[in-house]
Each structure stands twice: as C-alpha cells, then as structure tokens.
C-alpha cells in the first residue's frame, strides 16, 4: 500500500468518526435548544412529558446522585486509603478485596439494577425510591472510584511517605496532609468518572428509583431520573422526541457542569493545603 493511501485512510477514518460524532452532538444541541426554555427546566411535566418541563425530574436526578456520592465518596476513599497505605503488601485480605473490586467493576449496569431491586427495594424494604436508586448507583461507581484513587495513591513517590514517617508523623497525618493532595488529580478523575456514570445511568434506575415524575417529598419517594425520562419519552410517548432532546441536552450539560465543578473544588482544596500555614 503506498504511503499516501495509508495517510488518506487515517485521515478518512478520523473525518468519518468526527463527522458522525459531530452529527450526534449537533442534533442533540440544535434539537435540544429548540425546545429548551427556562420554563422547561423548572416546570412539572404534563401529558406524560410531551408538554411542561422537567423540574421535579431534575430534582430527583440530583437527589439520587447526591445519595450515591454521599455513600460512595467516603466509603470509596476510605477503602482506597486502606488498600494503598495501610494494607500489608501482598497481604491476603488486600488481594481478595482488590480481586472482588475488579470483578465488581465489570458487572453490567443492568445487573446492578437487578441487585438493587432485589436487595434495596425488596429485601431492605426501601421500595422504588430515591434511596434505593442512589444506593444502587453507589454500588456501581464504588469499584471504579476505589481503583482510580488507589492507583493515584500508589503512583506517589515513596520519598514523601518515608520522609513523613521518618519525621515521626502518623500515617493518618501523612495521608491527609501530603498524600491525598498529591493524589488529588487521580481522585478527581475517579470522581468524575463516577459522577458521569451515575448521572448517565438508566438501566440500573428503572427498577430501583422508578418512574414517578412528581416532585419527590422524601428519600423514600420514587423519583424519575433524567436519563429514565429520556428513555420513556422516546420509547413510550409518541410525540415526545422534542422534549426528549431538550432533556438530553440538559443531561449532557449537567454532566459537563458537574465535572467542571468537581475539578474547580479540587483545585481550591489543593491550593488551600499548599498555602495555609
């Protein structure tokens, strides 16, 4: 194959993919903007979502995400710190935990949905609720988050670890003041991955947080997530496509916004750690 052909092929593949992806992006943005308004964001849905807005759905989405992060963030970070800093190298317990996390990371989201339905909704009696949905999502993102944090902590130069211990500092202090800030980029990457997955998730929520599109009044109320709303509009509601695209645009914007927010918060945190005496 002549050199020029190959170059052409590579450029062709890049153009093809860019074209398709931009097509998708443009459709989402253009069709979304056409139906989008302030009223759409704050109003309650009417006629199964054809009219009205997504106000209560947005609230439910954020509540579900909040529950998921509230549970997975401390638990995941704690587990990662233990794995990276406290567990004995090559220790049995550490290996078992790592193996199960790897397995968990591969489980398809719909299976998490099955589990959430069987465990949180039925066994623990949370029913179809924001709590069930949030906890199911937490289970889903914890393995990915832990592995990302652990990789970040393990990649840190051993000099700092030994330096801190040689100064008679406790491991806890070393972790909190030195290692965590140094691993912040990896932690934030894991967090963003988790937020992205949790916000985008549909399959695991259908049978855990449910379909109800009213404004949720407590953690035990069923709440429809934005992704579920999009699915419902496009599959079950004829004439719901315009609203579906507008919701999709809101969802994508939400994911991007949360990512930017998480990034900014870490930056501030790292700065405060470095510059406060």
């Amino acid at each position: 194959m002549p050199e020029r052909m190959f170059t052409l092929l590579i450029w062709g593949a890049a153009l093809l993919v860019t074209g398709a992806l931009l097509w998708l992006l443009a459709d989402t943005v253009l069709q979304g903007v056409a139906h989008l308004s302030w009223a759409f964001i704050v109003d309650a849905p009417e006629h199964a979502g054809r009219d009205g807005g997504i106000g209560p759905i947005l609230v439910s989405t954020l509540c579900i995400l909040g529950v998921a992060l509230l549970v997975s963030l401390p638990l995941g970070l704690g587990a990662a710190i233990w794995l990276a800093e406290f567990s004995r190298q090559g220790g049995f317990l550490g290996q078992i935990i790592r193996l199960s996390l790897d397995v968990l990371a591969g489980v398809p989201s719909i299976v998490y949905g099955l589990f959430g339905n069987a465990f949180f909704s039925l066994f623990l009696g949370f029913g179809f609720s924001i709590l069930s949905g949030g906890l199911t999502l937490a289970c889903m993102i914890i393995p990915v988050f832990i592995r990302s944090c652990e990789a970040g902590l393990s990649a840190i130069d051993h000099g700092w670890r030994h330096g801190a211990l040689a100064l008679g500092m406790s491991r806890s202090t070393a972790v909190w003041y030195i290692l965590l800030p140094a691993a912040a980029p990896a932690i934030i990457a894991g967090l963003m991955l988790g937020i992205g997955r949790a916000t985008a998730e549909t399959a695991a929520l259908i049978f855990t947080s449910g379909y109800v599109d009213r404004m949720p009044e407590s953690w035990m109320d069923s709440g429809r997530a934005l992704a579920v709303h999009i699915y419902d509009l496009s599959m079950n509601v004829t004439g719901g496509n315009a609203a579906a695209y507008a919701s999709a645009l809101v969802l994508v914007t939400l994911i991007v916004l949360l990512n930017v927010l998480a990034q900014a918060m870490t930056d501030r945190w790292v700065k405060r750690r470095i510059f406060s005496a």
Binding site: D157, G159, W160, H162, G163, A164, L165, A166, L167, G168, M169, S170, T173, Y177, I178, P181, A182, R273, I274, F275, S276, A277
Partner: peptide
C-alpha cells in the same frame, strides 16, 4: 516508633520536601 523517629531524624538520598509551602514543610511535623 513515632516518638523514636522524632528523636532520630533521617535524611534521604533524594531530597523529599513535601509538595507544600516551605513554611508548611517545617510546621507540619
């Protein structure tokens, strides 16, 4: 061991100042 290491300090081959400010490197311990 923490108290022991306070009384027996150690300097490493590769300089390992913490990724903090100069002041904080000294005040943290």
């Amino acid at each position: 061991t923490m108290r022991l290491r306070r009384r027996i300090g150690m300097i490493f081959q590769k300089p390992n100042p913490f990724p903090l400010s100069i002041r904080r490197n000294l005040t943290l311990p």
